[in-house]
């Protein structure tokens, strides 16, 4: 059965279902129990599962993650919620030096099956300490899996997969997407496997890759490109950045011969920088134009509404990038390439 629910509910349902299925799954984080989550994602969990399995923690990010790592090594399946991705920087040591390294450095004799959820992204005037996007940071670390869902259905399916998975998973959520609605299956066995991109819209002229909120921005831009410019864009949401379903992206680029990558994070060493290199390395002969990147501005996120909006990519920016990539080669009255 499908039902239309919000992203935050989909995430909550994923946790609740997995907690019912497996007694080793528990949730901890700052204000996840009594307060029910800073973004209300853990609503109702304490009521159903009690304080033993839904635990408020002190403000001690590195230790919260470390307790999760230790508990996972001893066979539990922790879900750690960090209040925002910016705060996850205080836990980088446990995430990178411990969670990611332990399975490898102990030669597989220890495993760290845990999920670290963290919301990020701008758009809420929270300024330079609460609004960032660190997908690129985490995607760089071998040993971690990185999920970045953009729809309620993917949020649920990927979170269920993450909880069942044997590896440490960085699960990035976007604060602006918590309220969006979508059809979500209530089949408890349904998961979204890691490493499988979703083609959101099929097209012929250009491939647009977008993650998190930018997956939606990419889709909206594609609709407008079709309508106003006669450009048929294929839109891909990778859904997970590690592993990355490069096959699907490359197949699309080989068909459209153009690529535009959209993300909210910073340009230097970003998701787009990485993906653009991969496309150039592996599909160079198919490219008719340089790969375009649409990114957040290269500054700490400003507070002023005007400035913040200017620092975040919008449809116009995507359209502009697509037009630059197609250089007028496609569209009504301009003929084929």
């Amino acid at each position: 059965m499908m039902a239309e629910i919000r992203m935050r509910e989909a995430l909550r349902d994923a946790m609740a279902e997995e907690m019912r299925r497996d007694g080793n799954v528990f949730v901890m984080g700052e204000d996840v129990a009594v307060f029910q989550g800073a973004f209300k994602v853990t609503e109702g969990l304490m009521e159903e599962f009690g304080e033993k399995r839904v635990r408020d923690t002190p403000i001690s990010e590195n230790t919260i993650v470390g307790i999760g790592v230790g508990a996972a090594m001893a066979g539990l399946r922790p879900i750690v919620e960090l209040m925002t991705v910016n705060f996850s920087l205080l836990a980088l040591d446990q995430i990178v030096n411990h969670a990611a390294a332990i399975p490898y450095m102990f030669n597989g004799n220890a495993r760290v099956p845990m999920v670290i959820r963290m919301p990020g992204g701008g758009g809420h005037q929270l300024g330079p300490t609460h609004s960032h996007s660190f997908e690129a940071l985490y995607l760089q670390v071998p040993g971690l899996l990185v999920a970045c869902p953009s729809t309620p259905a993917d949020a649920k399916g990927l979170l269920k997969a993450a909880i069942r998975d044997e590896n440490p998973v960085i699960f990035i959520e976007h604060e602006s997407l918590y309220g969006i609605k979508g059809e979500v299956s209530d089949d408890e066995d349904e998961i979204v496997r890691f490493g499988e991109a979703a083609v959101r819209r099929e097209g012929e002229d250009v491939t647009i890759v977008g993650i998190l909120k930018m997956a939606h921005v990419a889709e909206q831009a594609a609709a407008e490109l079709e309508e106003k410019h006669g450009i048929s864009a294929e839109v891909i949401d990778p859904r997970t950045l590690r592993p990355l379903d490069l096959d699907t992206i490359l197949a699309s680029v080989r068909k459209t011969n153009r690529a535009v990558i959209v993300e909210e994070g910073w340009p230097h060493g970003g998701v787009g920088a990485n993906l653009s290199t991969l496309i150039t390395e592996q599909a160079f002969d198919w490219l008719d134009a340089p790969v375009q990147r649409v990114t957040g501005a290269d500054v700490p996120m400003p507070y002023s509404r005007r400035m913040e909006q200017a620092a975040i990519p919008h449809e116009e920016n995507v359209i502009e990038a697509v037009l630059a990539a197609t250089e007028g080669a496609i569209g009504p009255g301009k003929g084929g390439s």
Binding site: T63, I64, V65, A71, G75
Partner: peptide, 16 residues
Amino acid sequence: GGNLPLAAGLAFASKY
């Protein structure tokens, strides 16, 4: 100091 949180996690699992 990296092993301290891990110790708490191991102990948490025992208690759990």
